[in-house]
């Protein structure tokens, strides 16, 4: 992260998105569903190579991250951010969103700084997963796979959509994972029921889609996954594709795959979480 900041001549990143905060700090804060307006929840300073996390407690925050305390007064939060070592002298400050209020407050607290799009840097930095991060996603994939098995069993015995959602979410939490990346998506077509499951385990996502009662994976899915090789463009995969990591990552159609990228690949009736490697793609949700 800090290398990428220095390469792009970025002094400070002020991050509001929980996935960004999670990716740079490893902090496990209480999960809230849905998007939230920008607020400074995590700060990365290139000069000190320090990561600062907004949290009242150190519980769930790795010991190599620093804390700064929350306030209900946005001006106080910005003052605290401006007071972090290396921030006051920053000239180039990347943000991953903004509100009219925080724009005014940041401009006031950091009058010499230029605010610019920090999200494109975060996207680049988060794109390739380390082996440890892939292991985290593998862990999520295990939960996604066991959750969808329960969901399909439920669908096969005639549960309605609410019932399928209920047994799936119950099964996910019984595995110790209490956060859905998205709550079960259910589509019916005659006797077949397609269910998509996405979980966030310790902040890392995996998702899988299958169809009851047959449960086999569509040939089109295997064909699409076979095209998930280093060097291929996203548009060439011939499926719905997005990146996964600390949540959903948007990939553009012309983006070229590289080893270490993790993709969600789905077609009608089926989908998997796939690791791009030096060789054959590794389907993480086939367990």
């Amino acid at each position: 992260m800090v290398d990428e900041m220095r390469r792009r001549d970025v002094d400070v990143l002020v991050l509001g998105r929980e996935g960004n905060a999670r990716a740079v700090s490893g902090a496990h804060r209480l999960f809230l569903a849905g998007e939230r307006a920008f607020a400074p929840g995590c700060v990365v300073v290139a000069e000190t190579a320090a990561v600062h996390v907004l949290s009242v407690t150190d519980f769930g925050v790795p010991s190599d991250a620093n804390l700064y305390p929350p306030s209900w007064n946005p001006a106080v939060v910005v003052e605290r951010v401006a007071g972090l070592p290396g921030v006051a002298s920053a000239r180039r400050v990347g943000v991953d969103g903004l509100t009219p209020l925080f724009e005014t407050l940041l401009a006031g607290a950091l009058p010499e700084a230029e605010l610019f799009d920090g999200e494109s840097l975060m996207r680049t930095a988060r794109r390739i997963k380390s082996p440890d991060e892939v292991d985290q996603i593998r862990g999520a994939a295990v939960v996604a796979a066991s959750t969808i098995a329960v969901a399909l069993d439920g669908a096969a015995r005639g549960l309605d959509d609410n019932g399928v959602k209920a047994v799936a979410m119950e099964a996910m939490a019984a595995e110790g994972t209490t956060t859905a990346a998205f709550e079960p998506l259910i589509a019916r077509n005659g006797d077949s029921v397609t269910v998509a499951i996405g979980v966030l385990r310790d902040g890392w996502e995996a998702d899988v889609t299958r169809t009851a009662p047959r449960r086999d994976r569509p040939d089109e899915l295997d064909a699409a996954i076979a095209r998930c090789r280093a060097g291929a463009a996203v548009a060439e995969i011939g499926a719905r594709v997005h990146g996964v990591g600390c949540g959903y990552e948007v990939l553009t159609p012309d983006e070229r795959l590289e080893p270490g990228m993790v993709l969600s690949v789905s077609v009608a009736g089926g989908g998997d979480t796939v690791l791009v490697t030096d060789g054959d793609p590794d389907v993480l949700t086939l367990t």
Binding site: K165, A166, M169, E170, A173, A174, T178
Partner: peptide, 19 residues
Amino acid sequence: SALFFRQIFEMGATGNTVD
């Protein structure tokens, strides 16, 4: 949490907002 999820979705909750 598992028990809670089972119940709310059976009753038609459209989402769980906070872990």
